[in-house]
C-alpha cells in the first residue's frame, strides 16, 4: 500500500468529516431509490479494511505517547491524555488476533464515543491508518458471515463492499464493552 496515498486520504477525511450535513444532502443521489445510507469511517489494519459508524467517531489523533497500565492484556495499549482526560487505548490488531505492527507516520488513534455499562465514555482505537469517510447503502450491507472472517461474528455489524474490497463494519460498543475488556484481564491474571 502506498503510504503517500494514505496520508492524502486521511487529510481528506479531516476536511470532509465536519460538514456531515453536506454529505447527507448528497445522499439521495448516491443511494437512489433503494433507501437509507450510513456514513462510515474506514481504516486499515494489516491489509484489511474496517469501518466504524461515523456518528461514533469523535476525532482522529496522531500517535502519541501511551502509558501502559500494568497487568492488563496486550491489546490494552494503555491510557493517553486527551485534553486533560485520561482515555484508554486499545490496539485493534491485537484485539482481533493479528500480529503487532510497527508504528509508522500513518499510525493513528481513532477516538470513539461508546456506551459502557450505560455510561457514555471515550475510547481510543489504534489503527495502522485512516482511509476515508464513505457512504454505504443499508441494502448493500450483508450480515456477517459465520465463517470465513478471522473475526468473531459478534464483533461485526455486517460486511459492505466498496470498489471490489470487502469492508468489515465493526460493532464498536461490543468490542469495547467492559465485559470484553475484562474477560481477557481475568485470563491473564
Amino acid at each position: 500500500m502506498d503510504q503517500d496515498a494514505d496520508v492524502e486520504e486521511s487529510q481528506e477525511y479531516e476536511e470532509s468529516a465536519p460538514p456531515r450535513a453536506a454529505a447527507k444532502a448528497a445522499s439521495p443521489q448516491a443511494s437512489g431509490a433503494s433507501g437509507e445510507t450510513t456514513q462510515y469511517l474506514t481504516f486499515q489494519l494489516d491489509d484489511e479494511v474496517f469501518a466504524v459508524d461515523i456518528s461514533k467517531v469523535r476525532e482522529v489523533l496522531e500517535y502519541t505517547n501511551i502509558t501502559k497500565v500494568p497487568r492488563t492484556p496486550d491489546f490494552m495499549c494503555g491510557v493517553i491524555n486527551l485534553r486533560g482526560s485520561v482515555v484508554p487505548v486499545v490496539d485493534l490488531r491485537l484485539k482481533f488476533g493479528m500480529s503487532r505492527s510497527e508504528r509508522t507516520v500513518n499510525t493513528c488513534i481513532i477516538i470513539v464515543e461508546i456506551v459502557q455499562e450505560d455510561e457514555v465514555t471515550e475510547m481510543g482505537a489504534l489503527a495502522d491508518s485512516v482511509k476515508e469517510v464513505m457512504e454505504l447503502e443499508h441494502s448493500k450491507i450483508e450480515p456477517p458471515p459465520k465463517l470465513g472472517t478471522r473475526l468473531r461474528s459478534d464483533f461485526l455489524k455486517g460486511m459492505g463492499k466498496h470498489e471490489d474490497q470487502f469492508i468489515m463494519l465493526l460493532e464498536i460498543d461490543r468490542i469495547f464493552s467492559t465485559e470484553e475488556l475484562s474477560i481477557a484481564n481475568h485470563t491473564l491474571s
Binding site: 497500565v69 491510557v79 485520561v86 484508554p88 459502557q116 475488556l181
Partner: peptide, 12 residues
Amino acid sequence: KGLGKTFQNSEE
C-alpha cells in the same frame, strides 16, 4: 483522574 470502567479490574 479516574481510570474509568475499562480498568475496573486494575484495582492496584
